[in-house]
């Protein structure tokens, strides 16, 4: 949207220019893009960028080497090495792949499951609605992490199991919001017209309901992806997530715990900063999406 300014004085015009710049900056979420692009790049091309194999020790390197700018560090391992003398930087780069993949896939699973069930619940109503909503309530009652831990102990650690688990834990929020949206959509004229014209339920859902709730799903997804990434890191940290020797950030933090008391800070700080940056960026991105796609500014 272009803001036309009808300022008379130079002051007003200057203010208008400033606002113009500001709105241009708001068009694109620069900070999140600035953060996310390198991480996405690292995740996609980890093999090309990473100096070493993340699961194997650097030949001839010592354990617990500090970052190269500290005493005892070497430019061979820019961010130091861990307890198996593996390269931290390479592990972080491959870890981005795990985090983003699990974060995105978990969100996709949760989002599609939640949206589908939300639409069914809202559109079909009746006992289907009752069942789905009662299950949603019950599943929301369990703390996400406790529920995820429970499922993880049953399914065992693997990356795809984690995706399934996070999908199962987080679909409920989508279902609830989408159902509410569908209930109001059903009252719209064009949906009623389509129904009167004899369109099948499936057709009405695909043509009229789904396209209209997708915005909400996208906003919710962009806001939850950070939560999912933290959940994955938590599960990996507790040893029920991504199994070693896979380089997941949460796992790296877990492995760093035993050496924390010895002051080997780089093992703890670097993976944490990576999580922080990615989650922060997704949060900012989510806020931007919400402003763009949800003009009513609901509290999703």
């Amino acid at each position: 949207m272009a803001i036309t300014t009808a300022g008379r004085g130079t002051e007003a015009r200057a203010a208008g220019r400033w606002r113009g710049k500001l709105s241009a900056a708001r068009e694109l979420p620069l900070l999140p893009i600035f953060i996310l692009v390198p991480f996405a790049f690292a995740a996609l091309f980890a093999e090309l960028i990473a100096p070493y194999d993340p699961t194997m020790p650097i030949p001839g390197a010592k354990f617990f080497m500090p970052p190269y700018w500290m005493e005892g560090g070497s430019p061979d391992a820019l961010l130091g090495t861990d307890f198996q003398s593996r390269d931290i930087l390479s592990r972080l780069i491959f870890g981005a792949r795990v985090s983003l993949l699990v974060g995105i896939m978990g969100t996709v699973v949760a989002g599609s499951l939640g949206t589908a069930l939300g639409i069914l619940s809202g559109y079909l109503g009746g006992w289907v609605d009752q069942v789905i909503m009662r299950v949603t309530d019950a599943w929301l009652a369990l703390p996400a992490l406790v529920f995820a831990i429970f499922l993880a102990t049953l399914l065992g650690p693997s990356m795809w199991n984690i995706v399934t688990i996070l999908g199962l834990v987080y679909w409920t929020r989508y279902a609830r919001v989408i159902r509410g949206e569908v209930l109001s959509l059903r009252e719209r004229e064009y949906v009623k017209l389509a129904e009167i014209a004899g369109a099948s339920s499936l057709r009405v859902i695909m043509r009229h309901i789904l396209p209209n709730v997708l915005n909400t799903t996208m906003v919710l997804a962009s806001l939850t992806i950070g939560v999912v990434i933290i959940a994955e890191a938590s599960l990996s940290f507790l040893g029920v997530g991504v199994p070693p020797p896979e380089p997941a950030w949460g796992l790296m933090l877990s492995e760093a715990r035993s050496t924390l008391m010895a002051g080997k800070w780089w093992l703890t700080v670097f993976p944490g900063v990576c999580i922080l940056l990615v989650v922060l960026a997704t949060q900012l991105f989510g806020d931007w999406m919400r402003i763009r796609l949800d003009p009513q500014q609901r509290n999703l």
Binding site: L253, A256, R257, L260, L276
Partner: peptide, 23 residues
Amino acid sequence: ALTGLAVPGFWLGLVLILVFSVW
């Protein structure tokens, strides 16, 4: 508010230990 939601609590715990207990 933003950092509060982005900083994982457990990592904060580790950093606190590092700063206030170890250092």
